[in-house]
Nucleic acid binder design. Sequence first.
RNA 1: GCGGAUGUGGCGGAACUGGCAGACGCACCAGACUUAGGAUCUGGCGGGAAACCAUGCAGGUUCGAUUCCUGUCAUCCGCACCA
Length: 823
Amino acid sequence: MERRYDFKTIEARWQKKWEEEKTFAAHEGSDKPKYYLLEMFPYPSGKLHMGHVRNYSIGDVLARYKFMKGYEVLHPMGWDSFGLPAENAAIKMGAQPEPWTTSNIANMKTQLQTMGLSYDWDREVATCLPDYYKWTQWIFLQLYKNGLAYKKKAAVNWCPSCATVLANEQVIEGHCERCDSVVEKKSLEQWFFKITDYAQRLLDDLDKLPGWPDKVKTMQHNWIGRSEGVEVNFTTEDGRPIPCFTTRHDTIFGVTYMVLAPEHPMVAELVKGTPQEEAVNAFVKKVQQISTVDRTSGNLEKEGMPIGAFAINPMTGEKVPIWITNYVIMDYGTGAVMGVPAHDGRDFDFATKYGLPIKPVISYDEYVPGEPMPHVVEEDGFMINSGQFDGMHNRKEAMKAIADYMEENGLGKRVINYRLRDWLISRQRYWGAPIPIIYCPKCGEVPVPEKDLPVMLPTDVEFKPTGESPLKTSPTFDEVTCPICGGKAHREMDTMDTFVCSSWYFLRYADAKNDLQAFDKEKTDHWMPVDQYIGGVEHAILHLMYARFFCKALHDFGLVEADEPFTNLLTQGMVLLDGSKMSKTKGNIVSPEVIIEKYGADTARLFILFAAPPERDLEWNDAAVEGCYRFLNRVWRLVGTIMDKCEGQDTALNLDALSAEDKAMRRITHLTVKKVGDDIGKRFNFNTGISAIMEMVNALYAYLEKDTNPAVLHEAAEMLLLIFSPYAPHMCEELWEMMGNNEEIAHHVWPDFDEKAMAQDEVEIVIQTNGKIKDRLTIPAGMSADELTEYIKSYDGFEAILEGKQAVKIIAIPNKLVNIVVK
RNA sequence: GCGGAUGUGGCGGAACUGGCAGACGCACCAGACUUAGGAUCUGGCGGGAAACCAUGCAGGUUCGAUUCCUGUCAUCCGCACCA
């Protein structure tokens, strides 16, 4: 029988079937164990790129495997569809973001469907639709009600090009994450989520996530940046408090100066009316003019000046000069730092430069009382020059003793500081979920009543590149009636950061069509937590931290049971071309459309999974794509040949009538079934699973040259199609049907392997002397180490292997090797 | 500077628990079939004439190390004047 591998017809046919029959719909009432598999939903830019293809191919192989393994799989897809690109496109083309986004979603959905992915499309969500953002606003109100959403005036990160503020997490080395412009500081009244309330839990619960890569957990750990220390009650000479945070309170007796951030409010207060006021103000101005980038670059020469005032060290009563410098920042701790040049490298450099005194309080090898320190001492040691604490080990004893003493005497208190800041969610842009708050001249800040949700985005707005939110151009949006007093009031003009929308979408999939609630608790609790989450490592901090925060907060409100959203996380590597990331700006994009058009979806999927294990970056290679296409054709012809051979034959397996070749073939078949199952289900090494299938195909071709048994061929072909189907579902379904099976592979169970078929009668073992291979032997399988040792001793070639030397010891590894230690 | 990861043929990669380094594929070479081959099939393919030498480099542990330990170099990623 001769039939061509016509992938276009085959793929279109099965995709249609899967869609019409809702093959991959998830059902709540099922008896099967649930498995929630989620790939990070895309921003609908309009075009699928290779990163998407990789992400969704990985997810699809896993999903199809889990379906076959008997799980009730929830495998949904949707759109993270608010955001700047739509708005920028609108400005550029004088159009509206909404139709632009809608048509992009339609395009991308079509492209996704040509990949043959096993999604439950009935649960599709798009964050820009009112039936979704209504609930984003509702969640905002829950956070607000619980004191986790608040408004404050703060120095915030402002991107002049995007004309909006940014969260701390969205500033990369002083530049805007999105457009790379230099970020400015602006003092604005903005909405924040109080993620810092959850800092400790977000940190602690990383330990509850053994299924996350250490890399991601470390990044979150560092981002939260917990440090334990003491806030020491320094004061001015006349008793005004200047608390200093320190993690090295063991060195408190070594303080020889204090440093304030130039923005510290005490600076202006202390110099007011003094002769140095002008010089200090000039210095502060100079520091503030340095851009954020330079100021945080680390290469900035440390500069400072004394402001003429003094601080009192509460432990010693000593008077130390107050300086201001360009290296202390207002954002961390209290903006005031005690200077201990003897035991801090940075302070040492600074004190040396400006001739400030250096006083050792921890002993070191070359210590001579009264002699200047030759270098900074950051190592641990025993206390000196520290009153009653002298002689204690600084870390093991003095840390605790000094903190206790300060707390008992009201000189300071233990404090835990985090680097994590509250999440700034206001955006001065149009294409996002409006913040559901009303400002009433009489009643003040009033949350929109839940019954009035959603606060709809107005359509009577103009998109002009003015740098102001287009919402302000709407004649109808601003003015509202106050829900409390009924008087005239105004709406909040800012929209929410799009990361808010993506922080709960995984909950909505569990109950995507609910128009009475964000989600039904029972349904969400049924599916949550996500068993496997898959996406790019670029979301290690932002999205994954925010989503964890939301899940914990909603858990605390009693809305969900889970307090961690994602049990297992797989971070896939980037798709590279010529060593760099494919991107529009570099113009080095290989379009998935072209590949699918030319070779088909099965080839595209196979290539991207075969080229590298999922976590690793993947170098695109056109030639290798053709190799995968060739392999699919090889499978196609193979199964055709086997069908011809089996035509009219009895394919019932008779284990007693198998030749040695038949047994060898069955052994490979069953080993491959086992290996592919492990590679997909346990190791996520999809590439080695494909290799194993290729080896099996090679073995089958070799077997076909021999005296074949139709039953063995038939069994092999069926198993091959079943285990290959997660990778190349269209072709496998087609061949499966051609072989006369009525039930689709998608509904078929994953095959069991037979341990007995995998056993072998004889094994080849290696004979080594001192670890060097000398010989190979074929011996009966299953010999114990002792039997093997005896076998080798009595083996004819034993003396020859020794080459005249003495055998000292024999190490035997059953079924593998024998190593003879010789002298 | 701190933290993390990765270094294996011409290339992508394999070796899962310390046990035959280079599976599988790409590229390349030779051959078969063919009017033809960019289809298909067969064989070869780390270096070396060989003994042997080879998993970034230098040591160590071990009967045995790509795998474990110490040091070091390189590349990538994250954080970075954090007090």
